[in-house]
Amino acid sequence: MRHILPPLAVAAAALLTGCMKDVRNDSLVTTLNAYSGAVRWDGLQSGLQYVDPEVLKAHPPTDFDLARYQQVRVSDYDDGSGPVALNDHEVKQTVRISFINNHTQAERSIIVHQLWRYDEKAKHWWLESGPPDLDPN
């Protein structure tokens, strides 16, 4: 019996770790889908709720940024091949966001390099790279 317990403990720990990763991965998929839906259908400003609160505190969007978000409507959100894991708690994703200016009806696209981080304590994925910059030039 002495030799059976350690392998069982190792197997149980591996199984729990695998389950934790599954929960984290499911949470990532849910968060990325919710974020893209919010941005696509409710506007860029609605995506701010997914940005890490510490990032928002350090770099709050200006009144000008918020006004720009109101001035455009997202026409396409293309996450390409999806997220790429950097480690167990971070993923990166490159997204093409197309938007139409409500005043001019001109359409533009920007490429956004997103960094998402999993907060173990909150059990939540946060957008670390901040909200998209509509004029990255």
Rank of each mutant, 00 (worst) to 15 (best):
M1L: 13
M1A: 14
M1D: 12
H3S: 12
I4H: 08
P6L: 01
P6D: 03
P6Y: 00
P6F: 01
P7V: 03
L8C: 15
A9F: 07
V10E: 15
V10T: 15
A11S: 15
A11P: 02
A12D: 11
A14M: 13
A14V: 13
L15H: 09
L15S: 09
L15N: 08
G18L: 15
C19K: 15
C19D: 14
C19I: 15
M20E: 15
M20P: 00
K21Q: 13
K21R: 12
D22R: 13
V23Q: 09
V23A: 09
R24V: 07
R24Y: 08
N25A: 14
S27T: 11
S27V: 07
L28S: 06
L28T: 06
L28K: 09
V29G: 03
V29S: 10
T30E: 14
T31C: 10
L32N: 07
N33E: 14
A34I: 02
S36V: 06
S36L: 05
S36D: 11
V39N: 06
R40S: 10
R40I: 05
W41T: 11
D42L: 13
G43A: 08
G43F: 07
L44A: 01
L44Q: 07
Q45W: 07
S46A: 15
G47M: 13
G47I: 13
L48P: 00
D52V: 04
D52Q: 13
D52K: 11
P53G: 03
P53W: 02
E54A: 06
E54F: 03
V55T: 10
V55F: 05
V55D: 09
V55P: 00
T62M: 07
D63Q: 07
F64Q: 14
F64D: 15
D65W: 01
A67M: 11
R68W: 12
R68Y: 08
Y69E: 03
Q70R: 08
Q70H: 06
Q70Y: 00
V72Q: 01
R73T: 10
R73K: 09
V74W: 01
V74E: 01
D76R: 06
D76M: 07
D76S: 06
D78C: 03
D78M: 04
G80D: 05
G80H: 05
G82C: 06
P83W: 03
V84Y: 05
V84Q: 10
V84M: 11
V84E: 10
L86E: 01
N87A: 01
N87H: 01
D88S: 04
D88R: 06
D88H: 04
E90R: 04
V91D: 04
K92H: 07
K92M: 06
K92Y: 06
K92T: 09
Q93H: 01
Q93V: 05
R96V: 13
S98P: 02
F99N: 02
N101S: 00
N101Y: 02
H103D: 15
T104W: 00
T104C: 00
Q105C: 02
A106S: 02
A106Q: 09
E107G: 00
E107V: 01
R108F: 04
S109A: 15
S109T: 12
I110K: 05
H113F: 12
Q114L: 07
R117Q: 10
R117K: 14
D119G: 01
D119F: 00
E120C: 08
K121L: 15
A122C: 07
H124M: 12
W125M: 02
W125R: 05
G130L: 04
P131N: 14
P131E: 15
D133C: 08
L134S: 03
P136R: 14
N137M: 12
N137K: 12
N137S: 13
